[in-house]
Design a protein around this nucleic acid. Structure first.
Lengths: 297, 297
DNA sequence: GTATCACATAGACGTCATCTATGATCGACC
DNA sequence: GGTCGATCATAGATGACGTCTATGTGATAC
């Protein structure tokens, strides 16, 4: 009895060209996909792929099965789409990490505006721990937040990894530098971004080097923080993804902290179905382009 | 993610009209099918059936899903058929209980003759224990034999249940009787059907009643046994399904032994696929009609 | 030779589809 | 009106199997 998941593996191998890539595409390990294909071949009665060292290619038997597999998957997709379109769709509850640039979210919201009628979205902002908590309780379906190895209780799709960098007004004497040591900033005032997941690491970094700046402002808004920096009220440390024409982002010497940002999926939700949701697929694309893109600064 | 087996349950309910019948059709228990439908409804997002006490009927959501499910199942069937047609088919190895009437087998073989080119059949005759043994060793794919509750190591499809009855020549003085006691046969000679699964029970029945007849013949062929009976060489006891114009089949008083005949499936084989095999489907039909039919006698 | 990349195999683990047993609900029947 | 029979739902236990990590095998590159 051929099962659906076997055909999904099969099609993924055709599309990806290798077992390993197909496994990643299916969010399973390579051995899992390997035994899956083996099982399908046993059930089908004959080999479906010629294994060569560099890639795999369809046998004639595989070529015969492929169109059936395509039609079956397409029909499944239609059925599942029909389900969602007909039912009064529950709002998609999405957690957003506070330290994600607002303009990313704005750009995403603009892109999905026409979809909001058929797929309402409910946004929950919070810090890393809040979002994990809500995910665990099933209060949100997915979260754009920090992915850590130890948060493997949730399925994750990693989007990018980045470091943290200083944020100086472009008028700052050191603004043109690529790397700045903490000690060079002893005379600077510093904006405290109270919501930032890196706050304690940042404080420790400066105090460990004897730098105990004055704090002219504490805020939980990154836009406020940037405005303060532009205005010359002080400097701060932010994730590298924040860019603004008015601020420079030199690296902070010996501060190797990075964060990995991605989508975490609540286990009650069906990741495969959810990730195919246009609204979320668009979020992924938006984040990837805005992060990797040339940026403003 | 909707799975294939859920759609099979769904379609079975549509076709059968009730969950219980659908469960039997799918060879699963009623609770299994029940939770299966519940799961499908959860995945689909809305109820698929209106449950009333006497029957279930499709909701509009169910009616929307049904055509997709049909197409998916049809496509799976096509894919699986394609597999079998393309591969050089292994012969279907079928065990046949010795005490099944030869004319049933002959009738079946005549019906499937045109199919033997594409699906070779290998017949293994044997007694009950031989067939079980071969099934366990994977030497045969299925067996038409006796189904016992304790032989639940194998999946079974029960075809019919029957008793054992006397076989007398129509010229016998008692041939017209419906029931005959063992004691009334003290003067008769008796043919021993050495291969019969009921042989020891039969012997015990007669000896316990003080009847120790002369045995003019021992045979392992039911056709020989019938020929002997017709010729007046002696009488015997056979499964009720044996009929012949020349013999009468009165019941033996106080002999309640019955046997349940059906198909046993080797666990290495895929029962669902195998049972759909035209050759085997035809065997099922042939046996059912020849057993239930008006018969010759 | 070493390194790297591919897929296959082995054993352990956890999920979940399945089972049996039981409950809940309704209609039929005397 | 109470009992019986039929239906589907629920609960807890169990086993199968899909998945994992770890490791093996083989081929190509340098």
């Amino acid at each position: 009895m051929i099962d659906r998941y076997l055909l999904r593996y099969f099609l993924a191998v055709i599309d990806a060209g290798t077992f390993s890539k197909a496994a990643a595409q299916c969010h399973v390990s390579q051995p899992t996909l390997s035994v899956g294909i083996a099982k399908l071949e046993r059930e089908y009665g004959q080999p479906l792929f010629h294994r060569t060292n560099r890639r795999v290619e369809l046998t004639t038997a595989g070529a015969r099965l492929a169109p059936h597999a395509r039609r079956i998957e397409a029909e499944f997709a239609l059925a599942e789409r029909g389900a969602r379109e007909a039912s009064p769709r529950a709002p998609l509850r999405l957690g957003l990490l506070a330290t994600v640039p607002t303009d990313w979210i704005a750009s995403w919201l603009a892109a999905i505006a026409p979809l909001l009628g058929t797929q309402p979205v409910e946004i929950v902002e919070g810090r890393e721990r809040d979002l994990i908590e809500r995910l665990a309780r099933g209060r949100i379906d997915a979260a754009l937040t920090i992915v850590r190895p130890e948060s493997e209780r949730f399925a994750a799709d990693i989007l990018f990894e980045e470091g943290y960098a200083l944020a100086l007004p472009v008028t700052h004497p050191l603004a043109a530098r690529a790397v700045i040591a903490a000690e060079e900033l002893a005379a600077d005032r510093m904006i405290v971004r109270r919501h930032c997941e890196a706050l304690s690491d940042t404080s420790r970094h400066f105090t460990a080097r004897g730098v105990r700046p004055f704090f002219p402002a504490r805020t939980t808004s990154d836009e406020r923080a940037i405005a303060y920096v532009r205005a010359g009220l002080g400097i701060t440390v932010m994730p590298a993804c924040f860019r603004d024409p008015g601020i420079a982002r030199p690296r902070l010497a010996d501060f190797p902290l990075t964060r990995t940002v991605g989508l975490l999926w609540g286990h009650h939700a069906d990741r495969a179905t959810l990730a195919g949701e246009p609204v979320l697929a668009r979020l992924t694309r938006t984040v990837e382009t805005m992060q990797a893109g040339p940026g403003i600064a």
